[in-house]
Amino acid sequence: MSATPTLVARAGTFFHRYANPGRFLKLGARLQPWLTWPALLLTLAGLGWGLFFSPADWQQGDSVRIMYVHVPAAMLASAGYAGLAVCAVLSLVWRHPLADLAAVEIGPVGACITALCLATGSLWGKPMWGTWWVWDARLTSVLVLFFLYLGHIALIRAFDDPQRGYKAAAILALAGAVDLPVIKFSVQWWNTLHQPDSITLTGAPTMSSSMLWPLALSTLGFSLGFAAIVLARTRAAVMESRIRSLLSSPRRRAGNASGDAA
């Protein structure tokens, strides 16, 4: 394992290049429009296509259109938590300051999108399955994910010393990541009321391509939108932390402006 330390060190150098808040803000400001506008465009196109132009399903009728909201939300709920877990590793191993700020900001956005996934799932389940909610493995594991998000949001803000909150929340994020494969494979491991995935890596999608295209557009749009919102919030958080440090030490203002959190 002689190569490991250099690899770890090299990864650390790579991540820390973007730990400098000034550099992050510059990069973020340049990246922001490239996320925001495509997100808006793709989401509107995907949802509009799904709502008005895609065909109705042969057995579900028009209620299949809920899919164009539900599936991207479900995917992002898991992806957002995976993002939290990545931030947790960066925070615990490399003590990356931006990872902590990003984790604070991903939490609420992820919780909102998980709530959207649960609510639209319920709205879809009532007319199709005949029930708002069942305790099958898929639905329950997503509900657990929602509570993990809520716990993360509370924990990261629970301490007077923010560093302790970051650490506790990072541990929770890593432990909770166990739920992600459970969500993904719940429909294969156990019999559930929820149907298995239509789109898999291994096989052809069991979905008409006239439904697949709007779904792909709205999924891409939602993902970019999620990234845009998280980026905007993280940029604001970096600026707020700089404002705090400027206010608390007005004399060192000039020296502080570059690299106070690096």
Binding site: P55, M67, M128, T206, S208
Partner: peptide, 15 residues
């Protein structure tokens, strides 16, 4: 109580 379980196939009515 009877719940309907649909499969993962999404197909336009006409198809």
């Amino acid at each position: 109580e009877v719940l309907a379980k649909h499969d993962e196939t999404y197909m336009p009515k006409e198809v």
